[in-house]
Design a protein around this nucleic acid. Structure first.
Length: 264
DNA sequence: ATGGTTGAGGTTCAA
C-alpha cells in the first residue's frame, strides 16, 4: 500500500498539481492538509474521475482542513476536535482490508515560542498533549495504525537547515520537540520516513515562500511525517520526499511525502 | 534588526 501525505495549501488552487501527483506516483491513498475549503467546496468529482472515488473531508472556511482520497474503499471515518475547537485538523479513516489511518494538521504555533506570551504556541502544545492522551485512552500500541500529516515540528538536528539557529524558532524548539516525542512514545510510533532515510542525512519537506531562492538557500525543515505503530514496523518498505514539487509552478510551500507499506 | 511571500476572503488574518 502506497500512502502519500501533502500539505497542499489550498486544494482548489492546486488541484491540477494534485492530479499530476496521483498520476505520477500512483499512491493508493492521498492525505491532504490545509485544504482551505469547506467540505462542499472540495473537488470530489475531479478526484473520483482520477480514480480516487473514496473520500473523507473535514473542512472549514478559509483555514485548515484535512482530507483523504483513496482508490480503496474507506469503511469508517472519524473526526476528532482537540482543544475544544472545531478546527478541522484531524480525520481518521479505515481502509478496507488495511490499517486505520490518522491524518493530522497540527497548529503551526505562531512566532513567539513562549506559551505564556503566545496563545498560538500554547494551543500547539495543548493540541499535542490532548492528542497523546486521546491515543492512550482510545487506542493501543498493538493496533496497526498509520499517522500522517503536517505536524509542524522538525524533531531532529538533520530535519532543519541549522539546528543552532532554529533552537528558538517555532517548529524546532526543545519544548515542542519534547511534546512530539511524548506523543510518539505513547503508542511506540515508529518514524517510517527516518526508518528508511537515516537521520545522518538532511531531509526537509517545507521551504518558506519568503526565501529569494528556496533551492539555492535550502533553508528547509522536515515538518511533514509518516509514523506507524509497532505491528507495522516491519512493513515499511520505502520512503521518499518529493523535493522537486517545491519547484512546480504555483507550488505549495510543503512537498509530498510517500511511504510504501507491505501489508502482506 | 527585520523583512521577505502566499492564500482566502474581504480591506486582514494565518502561515
Amino acid at each position: 500500500m502506497r500512502i502519500a501525505t501533502w500539505n497542499i495549501n489550498s486544494v482548489r488552487l492546486r488541484l491540477p498539481r494534485a492530479l499530476e501527483l496521483l498520476a505520477a506516483e500512483q499512491p493508493d491513498v492521498l492525505c491532504l492538509q490545509e485544504i482551505k475549503a469547506l467540505a462542499d467546496q472540495f473537488p470530489a468529482r475531479a478526484f473520483a474521475d482520477a480514480g480516487y472515488p473514496h473520500q473523507a473531508v473535514s473542512g472549514m472556511k478559509g483555514y485548515n482542513g484535512v482530507a483523504v482520497v483513496s482508490r480503496l474503499p474507506i469503511v469508517e471515518t472519524e473526526r476528532c476536535d482537540f482543544c475544544t475547537r472545531a478546527d478541522a485538523r484531524h480525520l481518521a479513516v479505515r481502509i478496507a482490508g488495511g490499517p486505520e489511518l490518522h491524518n493530522l494538521y497540527v497548529p503551526a504555533g505562531g512566532d513567539i515560542p513562549d506559551p505564556a506570551a503566545n496563545p498560538k504556541f500554547a494551543h500547539k502544545l495543548e493540541f499535542l498533549s490532548e492528542l497523546r492522551v486521546w491515543f492512550a485512552a482510545e487506542r493501543n500500541a498493538g493496533q496497526p495504525m498509520i499517522l500522517v500529516g503536517d505536524l509542524n515540528i522538525a524533531p531532529l538536528e538533520t530535519d532543519v537547515w541549522s539546528h543552532k539557529q532554529l533552537l528558538d524558532v517555532v517548529s524546532h524548539t526543545p519544548v515542542e520537540v519534547e511534546a512530539l516525542s511524548e506523543l510518539q512514545a505513547g503508542l511506540g510510533w515508529l518514524d517510517a520516513v527516518r526508518h528508511r532515510i537515516p537521520a545522518d542525512q538532511r531531509l526537509y519537506t517545507w521551504w518558506s515562500y519568503r526565501a529569494r531562492d528556496w533551492d539555492v538557500s535550502d533553508r528547509g525543515r522536515r515538518l511533514d511525517h509518516v509514523w506507524v505503530t509497532p505491528p507495522l514496523a516491519g512493513a515499511v518498505r520505502h520512503a521518499s520526499v518529493l523535493r522537486a514539487a517545491r519547484g512546480w509552478e504555483k507550488a505549495s510551500d510543503h512537498v509530498p511525502v510517500i511511504v510504501d507499506l507491505d501489508l502482506g
